[in-house]
Design a protein around this nucleic acid. Structure first.
Length: 110
DNA sequence: GCTGTGACACTTT
DNA sequence: CAAAGTGCCACAG
């Protein structure tokens, strides 16, 4: 059942599969779902995932440069950074250090 | 009428 | 300059 679920359900599952100490980008998730041009939808799904169960580690999802763009959706700007540092991820200037090295590709359907 | 799903153009990196 | 991201708005059920 891959095409029966809505786009949002797929986004939630992929973000939940992100291992600790690893991060991914909006475009990577969007492309994994087959809609690389609708990365906007991914962001909105994460925004809604904070008030639903189970809680989605949206703090591990950043943009292509590793910037904590949606950090405001967590309640505190530093909160997202602290969570990332808690995962052994170094964050400086609101950006993940060596992000490309910590980049995790969402393999949906694996 | 309200809630859910689906997209493009503008801004930032 | 060009590519990727943006955490919403509008249409449909």
């Amino acid at each position: 059942m891959l095409t029966k679920e809505t786009f949002y359900d797929r986004v939630y599952k992929i973000v939940r599969e992100i291992p600790e100490g690893r991060v991914t980008s909006y475009g990577a998730i969007a492309k994994a779902l087959g809609t690389a041009g609708s990365a906007r939808m991914v962001g909105y799904a994460l925004r809604a995932s904070q008030g639903v169960y189970p809680p989605i580690p949206a703090h591990r999802v950043v943009n292509r440069v590793g910037m904590l763009s949606g950090k405001a959706a967590f309640g505190s700007l530093d909160m997202m950074q602290q969570l990332l540092e808690n995962e052994s991820i170094v964050v400086e200037n609101d950006r993940v250090v060596d992000f490309k090295n910590l980049f995790w590709e969402p393999n949906y359907g694996e």
